[in-house]
Nucleic acid binder design. Sequence first.
RNA 1: GGACGAUUAGCUCAAUGGUAGAGCGCUUCGUUUACAUCGAAGAUGUUGGGGGUUCGAAUCCCUCAUCGUCCACCA
Length: 728
Amino acid sequence: MDKNYQPKDVEEPIYKMWEEGGYFKLSNNPTAKPFTILLPPPNANADLHVGHAMYVIEDIMIRYHRMLGEASLWLPGADHAGFETQFVYEKHLAKKGQSRFDFDRETLYKDIWNFVHENRSKMENQLRRLGFSLDWSRNIFTLDPTVVQTVYTSFKHLFDKGLVYRNNRLVNYCTKDGTGFSDLEVLYVERTDPMYYIKYGPFTIATARPETKFRDTALAVNPKDKRYKKYIGQTMDIMGLLGPITMTIIPDTDVDPAFGTGIMKVTPAHDPHDFALGQKFNLPVTPIIDFRGKMDFSWFLSQDTLDQKSRERAEKYHGKKVAIARQMMVEDLKTDGLMIKVDEHYSHRVGTCWKCGTVIEPLPLEQWYVQVKPLAKKATKAIKDKKVSFVPKRFEKIALQWLTNFHDWNISRQNVWGIRIPAWKCEKCAQWTVTAGETPTACQHCTHTRLIQDTDTFDTWFSSGQWPFATLQATGNPDDFKRFYPTSVMETGYDILPWWVCRMLMLGVYITGTVPFKTVYLHGLVRDAKGQKMSKSKGNVINPLQMVDLYGADALRMALVFGTGAGNDQALSEDKIRSMRNFANKLWNIARFMMMNFNAVNAPIPFYDEAMHKNLDDKNDKRIITELNMLTAKVTKQMETYRFSDAALSIYEFAWHRLADVHLEKNKERFKNGDVQALSVLRHVFLTILKLLHPFMPFVTEHLWKDLPRKSKTPLIISQWPAILRKK
RNA sequence: GGACGAUUAGCUCAAUGGUAGAGCGCUUCGUUUACAUCGAAGAUGUUGGGGGUUCGAAUCCCUCAUCGUCCACCA
């Protein structure tokens, strides 16, 4: 044996032995109790980051339950990650000086498909390097035909029940990425912008968006506001940059008399609140910003009675980006004497694209929506009926809050990469025919035969929200769904609780009638050594594979679990990983010490058993055995209660500071003299530690297990979780 | 404006109402063939402030302060 543990020499052959031995697959015992975890499918568009290494918690649970003899299934998969993948792919294109507009739909899809499949196999090998005991024979991709079929079927089902509908309302639209989003994908950032006070007929209005005022259709005031009460219901012509606009004054209790001047311009086409107000008062929706984020004055320029000045201005603004046009208008307002004042320090929150940072424009667009309330109600009931439990407990409240606050969910995306929505529009009657995937031969409404399929794809979360039943129905084993659904634990980061966990609950409960998982375990973010968020621009990113290369997978795994409370963010440092590497080395050397002493004895050392246990005659042996039993009981309890950090700490403490530092040192003479009982006890204690530690540090434990003489011929991965030997 | 965290040793964090712990760092000593990726000994805390409940509080309750995250249609 080498003086130091060399993970590089050990890990690959061990993983190969596990995988080729079929140990990740289910045992043949059909009566074994099922224990299932679905791997939250990583996006198949990039390498694993250190956050993915938190899957170690799942591996710990899976390995523990496998050692308990349960039918332990950890199902791997990958997410096509619709918009996000297309975004990543477009970045690759940009490097080559290309864009998505250079390709037709089919070509772009095919190219992204190839890109994703290259990444996917890379990513899967990275999961292997971390030692994850995934059942690769059941590997699923969100675009596998069976999964896609499930998604189609659910969509049709929801549509038939009236829980999916199409509607034209303002969507959160990113004009750069060219797609709408759900509310969750809008990232609000605090910004300071100028607030413009503009003369508006007899009033002064305050606005941060003067560029939309050309299409204002009304002015709103609080009905209780004495200053403006008398104007309510009046219609008047108000002078603007392009001549007078006709406007009605309407009452709205949402208007805060103390904000700005207490009078609000109403732009139904570009503001969600105004849109709702517009519906109430029957105001027209008249956009002035197009889907590329540019001003559109064609409605104005098409009039033939324009004066010279207005035409020139409109032509100047037309086609300009919003921010640029705004500046021009501000100047022109000043020229016309309409700008009363500018408050440069107006602080507000602006919606931006979560991916590219572009300001989100609310734009009117027809999309498919999921009606959330009925689904959320069922999910809420399931939580309140204790069909699902949360670790840590506090996330139950957060989940319930989300479920009560969700708005209807926009599931249409104007992307190529994704599952195309199975809905066809009739060219004659303009009505929609929805199917479970098959191309309709005629319109359901008027039997016309010319139909055009929606070009949009589903929000990727609409498919991953069905992951638990979609996967278990897609494994190729017809019994899997029956046996493993609902799954045991859903383990993921708390940051995707609303995106994923809540949606899986809603769709799972509604479509299968059962919760998709019994326990939700949420882990926190992995941050850098100083507790700061990792980011490429800060240069503080820890690459998990690089850490595996340097210190071994066990070291990284242990570092991520050790001293980390469930649901809390953690600071990860290279120092911590190194210290866990040192722990692996400590185990290695304990084994080395044992081998040395065993080899010095000519006869084989008997195995520790009931008989020896009953007749222990040495104080030190008795003591270490008692402590080992206490440790086993403690760790087992900690595993059962999801206290993995505590379990890791308990084993670490015992192995290093009790066994190595005290017991080994105290009994060195006995070992050297070939005391058979001492050696047998030592080996029993150490093998038991290897078992307890195996879920956390699978490689080094499996390797040492293999090298030491032991009763059982089976690999550690499928050995039995230690039981406690008791005196009668 | 709400919700949820956090505040514990120099740093990063654990702690399931019952004598405050770990890793790294620090001080002193140690090359006895398991390991210097080590060992021995040691220092550092009235657990953010203030109340309360309890035989007993880092832990439960109230309150204040600071930091963080998320949510909400203030133009």
